[in-house]
């Protein structure tokens, strides 16, 4: 019995510390993707301004409340608009942004293939 309890305890401890580390990583990942709105070109993660510090606390809160990464982004997007997100997701505003470089790459490849390369 004692042995079992010990096992369960260690298991809990391990999983708990894992969880904590995970939360820390998620927090860093999320705050790196948020723009510190009162700073110039800094992410919330990089900034130590009042605004960024509060935002970090709030992100922690939201994570412990069990919100997923996407839900947290959505929450901040509602408050502050797309401007706060460093990663402009693929939506109707950003189709061109994401797809144009790839399209240009394909066109470039096609031109090279067509015009320059001879196959044996």
């Amino acid at each position: 019995m004692k042995f079992f309890r010990f096992l369960i305890m260690t298991f809990l401890l391990i999983s708990f510390s894992n969880l904590k580390a995970d939360n820390y990583d998620t927090r860093n990942k999320i705050t790196k993707n948020l723009r510190c709105l009162i700073c110039q070109g800094q992410s919330v993660y990089d900034s130590d301004s009042e605004f960024a510090n509060s935002l970090k606390i709030l992100v922690d809160k939201k994570i412990t409340e069990g919100l997923t990464e996407d839900q947290i982004y959505k929450y901040f997007k509602e408050k502050y608009g797309d401007w706060i997100l460093y990663d402009p997701g693929l939506n109707k505003n950003t189709y061109i942004l994401w797809l144009l470089p790839i399209l240009l790459f394909l066109i470039g490849g096609a031109i090279i293939y067509k015009n320059f390369i001879v196959r044996k």
Partner: peptide, 13 residues
């Protein structure tokens, strides 16, 4: 106290 309510309001500072 920690600035989080201001963020709920969408404030900067």
């Amino acid at each position: 106290s920690d600035g989080t309510i201001a963020i709920e309001w969408g404030a900067y500072g």
